[in-house]
Computed example of a mutant assay.
Amino acid sequence: MSAPLRVLVVDDERLFAELMRVALGSAQDMQVVDVVHDVAGAVAATARLRPDVVLSDYHLPDGTGADVARSVRRAAPEASVLVLTGDPSSTVLADVARSGAVGHLTKSRGLDEVVAAVRVAATGEILFSPSELQRLLVAEPKDVVLDEPLTARELEVLRLLANGSSTSAASTLLGISTATLRAHVQAILRKLGAHSRLEAVAEAARLGLITLDMRARDRSPARGSALAEG
């Protein structure tokens, strides 16, 4: 039996944080290693406990969930950060996407959906709904030339990720192994200066390298988020 996922909960609403502790702790494959209530606590707990996933509220007393993601990627780059919000603005979504977090989830989701999202987050897959990604990708692109351009295959991989394909689905569609696809993803992250697949998609959209085909995303056999809306 594999070791349970180690989850750190970050939320300044004590009742909600305790609810997350109970819900996640009830899953047989998860262990809540701590509950903290601000960015500073999240950074300290991450360095001490090395969680697999950090589930963080966006609005915190001393910063944001995006700040948590930026700090965690420095302290424990192997950890995935999933950010929770109420009703996010485009500014919040862009901040989360470019922070290194793997995704975003609204607090209106059911507890079973949050548990499922934590499992997905642990794999590094993108957790953004189609409508949220669309709001990111309609931003005006910048005329920037990369120091090391993406190859044609890397652009194919990036477009599939943007349209919601999981690692296994994208590798099947391209006729390559999952190991080869992950190697392409690592090259994409390096060239774009990104720390997560979501951040890579957001940066590629900002540079005008990709657009989101909503129809393709709806047809995708395995969306980056099993919880995607619409």
Rank of each mutant, 00 (worst) to 15 (best):
residue 126 I to E: 08
residue 192 L to F: 03
residue 191 K to M: 06
residue 15 L to W: 07
residue 142 K to Q: 06
residue 222 A to N: 11
residue 180 T to S: 14
residue 124 G to H: 04
residue 130 P to Y: 03
residue 36 V to Y: 00
residue 123 T to D: 10
residue 223 R to I: 01
residue 15 L to H: 09
residue 94 A to M: 10
residue 10 V to F: 02
residue 64 T to M: 01
residue 89 S to K: 05
residue 25 G to Y: 10
residue 42 A to L: 13
residue 186 Q to P: 00
residue 109 R to S: 03
residue 134 Q to D: 13
residue 141 P to W: 04
residue 208 G to I: 01
residue 52 D to A: 14
residue 92 V to Q: 09
residue 17 A to K: 06
residue 20 M to S: 00
residue 35 V to S: 08
residue 11 D to P: 03
residue 55 L to M: 12
residue 174 L to Q: 00
residue 171 S to N: 08
residue 138 V to M: 13
residue 121 A to P: 07
residue 137 L to W: 10
residue 192 L to N: 06
residue 146 L to T: 00
residue 82 L to P: 10
residue 204 A to E: 02
residue 130 P to G: 11
residue 151 T to W: 09
residue 45 A to I: 09
residue 98 R to D: 11
residue 195 H to Q: 03
residue 53 V to F: 02
residue 78 E to R: 12
residue 141 P to H: 04
residue 106 T to P: 08
residue 161 L to P: 03
residue 156 E to T: 08
residue 87 D to L: 13
residue 177 S to W: 10
residue 161 L to I: 15
residue 54 V to F: 10
residue 71 S to K: 05
residue 223 R to A: 14
residue 41 G to H: 05
residue 131 S to F: 00
residue 34 D to K: 15
residue 178 T to Q: 11
residue 32 V to Y: 07
residue 105 L to N: 04
residue 99 S to C: 01
residue 15 L to V: 15
residue 174 L to N: 07
residue 39 V to A: 04
residue 190 R to C: 02
residue 208 G to A: 01
residue 50 R to D: 07
residue 24 L to C: 03
residue 136 L to M: 11
residue 138 V to G: 12
residue 222 A to I: 08
residue 94 A to Y: 07
residue 38 D to E: 10
residue 157 V to A: 02
residue 211 T to S: 14
residue 104 H to Y: 09
residue 69 A to V: 11
residue 222 A to Q: 15
residue 136 L to A: 12
residue 46 T to W: 05
residue 89 S to H: 06
residue 156 E to K: 09
residue 90 S to E: 06
residue 20 M to G: 00
residue 112 D to E: 14
residue 157 V to D: 04
residue 40 A to M: 10
residue 227 L to H: 14
residue 215 R to N: 13
residue 144 V to R: 15
residue 72 V to M: 09
residue 36 V to W: 03
residue 115 V to P: 00
residue 113 E to K: 11
residue 79 A to N: 01
residue 200 A to T: 04
residue 165 S to G: 08
residue 191 K to A: 09
residue 116 A to W: 09
residue 147 D to L: 14
residue 68 V to Q: 06
residue 162 A to I: 01
residue 31 Q to H: 12
residue 84 L to M: 14
residue 108 S to R: 10
residue 63 G to P: 09
